[in-house]
Design a binder for these strands. Structure first.
Lengths: 243, 243
DNA sequence: CGGATACTTGAAAAGTCTCAATCCGCGTGG
DNA sequence: CCACGCGGATTGAGACTTTTCAAGTATCCG
């Protein structure tokens, strides 16, 4: 882990679909921040880089002092149960916020799936800043609502879809993140392992493999390697129930 | 459904556990609103009452013009899939907000489980009000974060817990809502049917019944009637994995 | 190139679903 | 007030999905 103070910082991009129709001038799928808001927000934060996969960024049960904005890479939020089982609650992609806390304590562990870079905001100062910048706070609010929707979609998938369909929905999801999906050849580079996918889908790794085999048999994808998949996007979406 | 303009309105109570430790003076588990904020917010809203169970409050796919605050009763959010399956995404209890929208359209259908009363806020005016009242907006933000946590807990339950445990967790949840749980006798009055519970837990109604039978056999509850349950709260929490 | 890890496959066991039949409880009308 | 009827709730049996455990194979990284 490296904390950097480099001058040349990436723009603050927060991904979110609004609850209401986007207003004119808004960049599709991203919150709109004015240059000065960008700058001030950026001043609150440090950039931190995690160079290796599986680096732990924050731990379930620890005091929560920071909110994180993922700039580059993929991060997973894991929740450990008493009996040792773990559920991957979410995968985060660039533009996502993470570091969910309850009563001052992190609810999940966040770890790097790939090497990654994050903005790290001290909670207290961020809270103060948001109070003084209602437009920005509204942006964070919209992002929170966006995340509620994602979480609900996931609940629906877990409750109603069988494993092959859940997997299909997951792959469609992954294909929405440009950095790992080459639209040209419909080639998806999965950053995470079968075990991670299994813990995300609430299934065993073996079942995930079997579900992959099924999707391949039905012509929804081709496995060029365990993590190199050619996706038949239309069929995949139709099958998963994702409209 | 009845829209009322009665002068004597209930207080606006929004239930939420904060992400950070509550500050002194905050009412435990509720957002803190000053009397004037209460009054102004109240002025934005209408009170609407739904006198019969199963009344539809808002419908999936319809244009979203209002955000709802549940004052009294129980409401469920149902999501219908293309193939006709339905998932109950959430049950709402007094103090909960509902009416989740995406791009101006409701994502779920909300219907009354019991007769109920709600505050109904026009989105646009509420949005404006929140921009002008950062403290209140922060409150709504905290509520949204609270709801993200609930949704994540649900994901974990769906992914990791078998049906009896999911049911136990659900019952523990229900027992947290005073109006339907008599702490004196540990007697829970379920407002919803087996089918509703099934669609909430992602299971069949028959399986839910069998799970009830199992919990009873193991001494975690007593069924006085299908919807009258004596809960052994400690054992139930221990079993469900709810700390 | 070798070793460790990740992935895949097979077979038996467990959990849940579906379908069908039955039972209960509550509100209605006689 | 009681009998009836209907929807909700329960129970049983067989089918199907997913898990678990065990073994084998591919892949990646040093």
């Amino acid at each position: 882990m490296t904390v950097s103070q480099r001058a040349n910082r990436p723009r603050i991009h927060i991904k979110a679909t609004p609850a209401w129709s986007p207003k004119q001038g808004e960049e599709a799928g991203h919150l709109m921040l004015s240059p000065s808001e960008q700058a001030e927000l950026g001043r609150l934060a440090e950039i931190v880089e995690y160079r290796t996969a599986k680096s732990e960024i924050l731990a379930q049960g620890e005091p929560a002092n920071f909110l994180y904005l993922l700039v580059d890479g993929v991060v997973q939020a894991c929740h450990a149960l008493k009996d040792g089982q773990r559920q991957i609650v979410a995968f985060y992609w660039p533009g996502d916020l993470f570091g969910l806390a309850e009563q001052g304590v992190y609810v999940n562990t966040a770890e790097a799936v790939t090497p990654c870079a994050v903005y790290r905001f001290p909670f207290r100062r961020l809270e103060q800043f948001l109070l003084e910048n209602p437009k920005v706070q509204q942006g964070f609010f919209v992002k929170a609502i966006h995340d509620i929707r994602s979480a609900q979609r996931r609940t629906i998938a877990m409750g109603q879809l069988d494993l092959p369909r859940r997997l299909a929905a997951f792959l469609v999801d992954c294909s929405g993140h440009g950095r790992y999906f080459d639209r040209e050849n419909a080639m998806l580079s999965l950053p995470m392992s079968r075990y991670d996918i299994a813990d995300y889908l609430g299934a065993s790794a073996e079942s995930v493999t079997r579900a992959f085999a099924l999707l391949e048999k039905n012509g929804l994808l081709l496995r060029w390697g365990p993590r190199k998949l050619e996706i038949k996007t239309e069929r995949m979406m139709a099958f998963s129930g994702t409209d």
